[in-house]
Design a binder for these strands. Structure first.
Length: 568
RNA sequence: GCGUCUGUAGCUCAGUGGAUAGAGCAACUGCCUUCUAAGCAGUGGGCCGCAGGUUCGAUCCCUGCCAGGCGCACCA
């Protein structure tokens, strides 16, 4: 928790009647007043009125009278039913800035005595389909969540549950044999496989026999036909290689690429386990688990032709992950349309007596639209992640050429900014919101954007470089001097970063960190505009403020998966 | 029909059981001989979808309704 909120809560607790000290959730009750002139923290006494049978204003008076003022507290004021706390400014500046200076890249992080494991299943592309914008959201969200949980002291296992099995594999095998372009496959495997996928569906509309051919090809793959298997394996590894290069541009790595093919030989065990527990029923020729008592539609386990299904694979994966990782949490970062699917899978496991499924969570997110149409892979109506990144990077480079043509390593910085803009754009919305994708807003570098945050970081760094060339006029730090409105606003923002990280973990929601960074940067830029650093009589203290701001921006950007360029 | 998510400024979105509801974009106006103007400051702009209820207090919690998205058996 942030430094002074914690101290204020402790102070209030001691001032309360004994019987209330334990039961009140002060962390929830204590708030920051809407106007800083009212105080730094406030305790509303209204909720105690009924319990104590006294007027809120009287209770507030009583609490204020009980408080023994520590050195860090400037004063306490009672306004109506509120007890308002004013923190001593110099003390606050000192404690916040020295804490950040000491903790640096670990400021805001948590150490766990015995590290708990969290498995995060994200990105998980279907390798026969392209990395469209829909896939961007799970990839970016999952990556950020992985960093947040890691920062919060968890051992994180990043799992890419590849869609590398199923009848669509038969489609690319058939497609490749009929229209495949070997050259293109080497150059750009994902786009070539995508082209085959789209063409397959187009041709299959007039020639339904293609569907049969695909089914047959997949059946032969399952039987281990060496020629077909070699083809599949080649497509798979080419696709993974290309994914890895895109992931690398975004700083993403995985601990496992075990996907659907990996679980293929673990399906029979799931079916027999469900049979043994008497959960499997036959309905219309298919094997199902009835979930009436959970108020859910039945979960389909096996098709009438004997083939297993999506749910079966997820059951196998869930069981495997439990035994492999003994996780505290398993997070599935998968779109909101699949909420029912996960409810069903989790319900089946619960019925099978696997109580550990309570640790499993679906982390849903809203749909991405392009214009007013939903993405449709089959129609080829997609935007490639790679093209978005390339475009973003190119636009960033153009801006650098126009504004800062002498910048060193322009291409690298442009990549950081362009990709930063895309990542930030996708993280700044609450994950449940549907978002409408358009290049104009995704590639905007002004206002509430990643580049704005990166720019603020670079700008502060520029002042530090400038200061290094100037004689420092003060060695004795006097934090009490940092008492202007702009400085206090900035210090308060810096102070609350640990709370923001904690909330982001609890809600599985990186958007809070993105919004926090925007506010932090606004606070910094307000300060920057109003106060001179280099050559001022508070130079040393303000440099500390700059360093702390840069530390927190860097930590926050890291949690979102963005780079923090030194210069831009 | 059932379930679920969303509904806040012209647009895109924050926000919280509490004291006057906030940003960005767009529009208009200022600010670069001074540490990066990818910036800062200002102006205008709101039945917080509608109606009840709980509460000292609701934009926030509950119920109903309206609008939109998504899902609901052999795809994943």
């Amino acid at each position: 928790m942030s430094i002074f909120k914690e101290r204020t809560i402790e102070l209030i607790r001691q001032a309360l009647p004994d019987e209330l000290q334990a039961e009140l959730d002060l962390n929830r009750l204590v708030e920051v007043p809407p106007d800083p002139t009212l105080g730094d923290f406030a305790f509303p006494a209204f909720s105690l009125a009924k319990i104590l049978r006294k007027a809120p204003a009287q209770i507030a008076q009583d609490i204020a009278a009980e408080i023994e003022k520590p050195v860090w507290l400037e004063r306490v004021a009672v306004v109506g039913g509120y007890v308002n706390f004013f923190i001593e400014k110099g003390q606050r500046a000192h404690d916040v800035l020295t804490t950040i200076a000491a903790q640096k890249e670990s400021y805001g992080s948590t150490v766990q005595d015995t590290p708990k494991t969290v498995v995060i299943d994200f990105s998980s592309p279907n390798i026969a389909k392209p990395v469209g914008v829909a896939l961007i959201r799970t990839t970016i969200l999952g990556h950020s969540l992985a960093r947040i949980f890691s920062f919060r002291g968890y051992q994180v296992e990043r799992v890419n549950h590849l869609g590398d099995w199923g009848t669509q594999c038969g489609k690319w095998i058939v497609g490749y044999r009929m229209w495949g372009d070997e050259e293109q496959l080497r150059l750009s495997p994902i786009k070539e496989l995508f082209r085959l996928y789209v063409r397959f569906h187009k041709e299959a509309e007039v020639d339904p026999a293609l569907e049969d051919a695909a089914r047959e090809a997949f059946a032969r793959l399952e039987q281990g036909d060496p020629e077909i298997y070699a083809l599949w394996e080649r497509f798979r590894s080419l696709s993974i290689e290309e994914f890895k290069t895109i992931y690398a541009r975004m700083g993403i790595t995985f601990d496992s690429y075990n996907g659907e093919a990996f679980y293929e030989d673990k399906m029979a065990a799931v079916v027999s386990m469900l049979t043994e527990k008497g959960l499997l029923q036959t309905s219309e020729g298919a094997k199902i688990v009835n979930l009436d008592d959970e108020n859910l539609p039945p979960c389909l386990i096996q098709k009438s032709d004997g083939a297993t299904l999506y749910a079966t694979r997820d059951l196998a994966a869930a069981i495997y992950r439990w035994h492999t990782y003994q996780p505290t949490f398993v997070l599935y970062v998968v779109g909101a349309p699949q909420q029912l699917h996960f409810q069903q899978v989790f319900a089946v496991l619960r019925k099978a007596g696997m109580q550990w499924v309570d640790r499993y969570e679906h982390i849903p997110f809203g749909t991405i639209r392009f214009g007013d149409q939903a993405m449709s892979t089959r129609r080829g109506n997609v935007v490639f992640l790679e093209d978005v990144l390339n475009e973003a990077s190119a636009r960033a480079l153009a801006i650098i050429e126009a504004r800062n043509p002498n910048l060193a390593q322009k291409e690298q910085v442009a990549e950081q900014i362009g990709i930063g803009a895309v990542l930030f754009r996708f993280l700044v919305y609450s994950r449940m919101k549907d978002i409408s994708f358009d290049f104009a807003s995704a590639l905007s570098f002004e206002g509430d954007t990643g580049p704005y945050v990166q720019y603020t970081y670079a700008r502060a760094g520029s002042v530090l470089r400038k200061a290094a060339q100037v004689e420092c006029n003060s060695t004795q730090l006097d934090y009490a001097g940092l008492n202007s409105a702009e400085e206090m606003t900035l210090i308060k923002e810096l102070e609350r970063f640990p709370d923001v990280v904690e909330a982001a973990e609890a809600a599985r929601e990186p958007a809070g960190i993105a919004h926090y960074l925007l506010e932090l940067c606004r606070a910094f830029n307000g300060f920057y505009h109003e106060h001179r650093v280099v050559g001022s009589n508070l130079e040393a203290e303000r440099l500390e403020l700059l360093r702390a701001t840069r530390t927190v921006i860097a930590n926050g950007l890291f949690l979102l998966g963005l780079e923090a360029p030194e210069e831009m």
